[in-house]
Each structure stands twice: as structure tokens, then as C-alpha cells.
Amino acid sequence: MSATNHAQKIKQDSKDYLTTALFQLLQTKCLNEIKITDLVKRAGVSRMAFYRNFETIDEVLIEYFEPKIQSLFDAVILQIPTTQKLQELAYFFNEFSSELTLAVKREYEFIIQRIFNKHMTKFYFDEAPKRWPTIKENELVYWTHFMSAGIYAIWKEWFLDMDRSTLVEVHDLINKFQNGTALLLLADKKTEK
């Protein structure tokens, strides 16, 4: 193994140890109660190892959740059939249910929501002009934020109380909200003429 590969392996190991340690600490503490000193001690790495990889503790969680949420959006963006999309959603919620519950309980859900919003914004800015080309850019910005916050709230509500509705019902409801609000914006265009 070359020196570069060895250094990369050590760097990745440090990240893995820090991530594991952070989730262990989050079992009993809220995110804002955890200090870098606590984290590096639990992970068995130096402060220098932490700062070689991250600037803040939040970044550990961002790096952990970003690829998971990205893969979920990739399934949507690739325009896969609805049944496959629903399978991806079901897998996501099953696979990460304890982590998402912990995020709410330990007050770092804002990190997941920020990642979600970033991907929603990208999705809508890529997709909406194709589907609804007459929506003005400033309306698209506001509509995207409105949809992102609403969709996140719906998924969170469903996730915390899955017995109320099926995954299919929630997916269909989100589609109705998305299409309905977009059509309202388009209807305004027709009445303005």
C-alpha cells in the first residue's frame, strides 16, 4: 500500500471512529451538549484528527446523512417508476428510522432538514421549468421553499405516526399538493392576460 493510500485509510478510519462515537454520545445527549473534547475522547482519536476531517461537529452528521439523502433524491430525479420510488422511500425509512427518530429526540433534525431542502431546491430548479415553463423565477424560488418545507413536514409527520396513512397515500397527497400549487401559479398567469 502506498503512503498516499495509507494516509487516506487513516483519514477514513478517523472519520468512521468520529461518526460512530458521535452516534454513541447522541444516545444520551443532545447535539448542542456534545463538545469536541468529548467526541475525540470517545472516538479514541486526537483533536488534530478531528480538525483534519471536520470544522464542526455538525459536519460529521452532514457527511453521514448527505449521501443517504442524495441517493433518495437520485431515485426521484432519475424519474424511476412510482412503485420503485415507493420501494426506495420504504427502504430509506426502514433503514434509517432509528437515526431519524434520534435526530428529532436529540435536536439535530435541522441538519437533516437542511440537506433535504438543498436537494429539494435542486430538484425543483431542475424539474419545474421543464414541467411548468411559465412560472417566473422569483415565484419558483418561493414555491420551492414552500414545497420543500411542506413536504418535509408531511414526511416527518408520517414517519412519526406511520399508522395513520400508507406510504402510497402520503406520496399521492404530496403529488396533489405539488401539482395543485403549481397549477394555481399557472392559473394566475391566465387571469393576468
Score class of each variant (00 low, 15 high):
Ile154Phe: 06
Phe146Pro: 01
Glu139Phe: 08
Tyr152Phe: 15
Gly150Cys: 03
Trp132Arg: 10
Val170Thr: 12
Pro133Ala: 10
Ile135Arg: 00
Ser165Val: 05
Ala153Lys: 12
Phe146Gln: 06
Pro129Gln: 07
Gly180Ala: 06
Leu140Ser: 07
Leu183Ala: 12
Leu183Trp: 03
Ala187Ser: 10
Phe159Met: 02
Pro129Ile: 10
Glu157Ala: 15
Ile151Thr: 14
Leu167Gly: 11
Lys136Asp: 14
Lys136Ser: 13
Glu137Ala: 11
Asp172Met: 06
Trp158Ser: 04
Val170Trp: 03
Asn179Met: 07
Ala153Pro: 03
Ile151Tyr: 04
Gln178Gly: 00
Asp163His: 15
Lys136Gly: 06
Phe177Trp: 11
Val168Pro: 01
Glu169Ser: 10
Asp161Gln: 12
Leu184Trp: 03
Gly150Leu: 02
Glu169Gln: 15
Ala149His: 08
Asp172Cys: 05
Trp143Phe: 12
Lys156Phe: 05
Leu173His: 12
Asp161Val: 04
Pro129His: 02
Trp155Asn: 04
Lys176Val: 15
Thr166Val: 00
Leu185Glu: 02
Tyr142Cys: 08
Trp132Glu: 10
Thr166Glu: 02
Glu139His: 12
Val168Gly: 04
Leu186Phe: 05
Asn179Gly: 04
Lys176Met: 10
Leu173Lys: 11
His145Val: 10
Leu173Glu: 04
Phe146Ser: 04
Leu167Ala: 09
Lys176Gly: 03
Trp155Leu: 08
Lys156Gln: 12
His171Glu: 11
Ile174Lys: 09
Lys136Arg: 14
Thr166Pro: 02
Gln178Ala: 07
His171Lys: 13
Leu140Phe: 07
Glu137Val: 14
Ala153Val: 01
Lys176Ser: 05
Ala153Asn: 13
Lys136His: 13
Ile135Cys: 04
Glu137Leu: 12
His145Phe: 08
Leu160Asp: 00
Phe177Thr: 10
Thr134Asp: 15
Val168His: 08
Ser148Cys: 01
Trp132His: 13
Glu139Asp: 15
Asp163Val: 11
Leu167Lys: 08
Leu160Val: 05
His171Thr: 09
Ile135Lys: 00
Phe177Lys: 05
Leu186His: 05
Gly180Cys: 06
Arg131Phe: 09
Asn179Phe: 03
Gly180Ile: 09
Leu186Arg: 12
Asn179Tyr: 05
Trp132Lys: 06
Asn138Gly: 09
Ala182Asn: 10
Ile135Leu: 08
Asp188Glu: 15
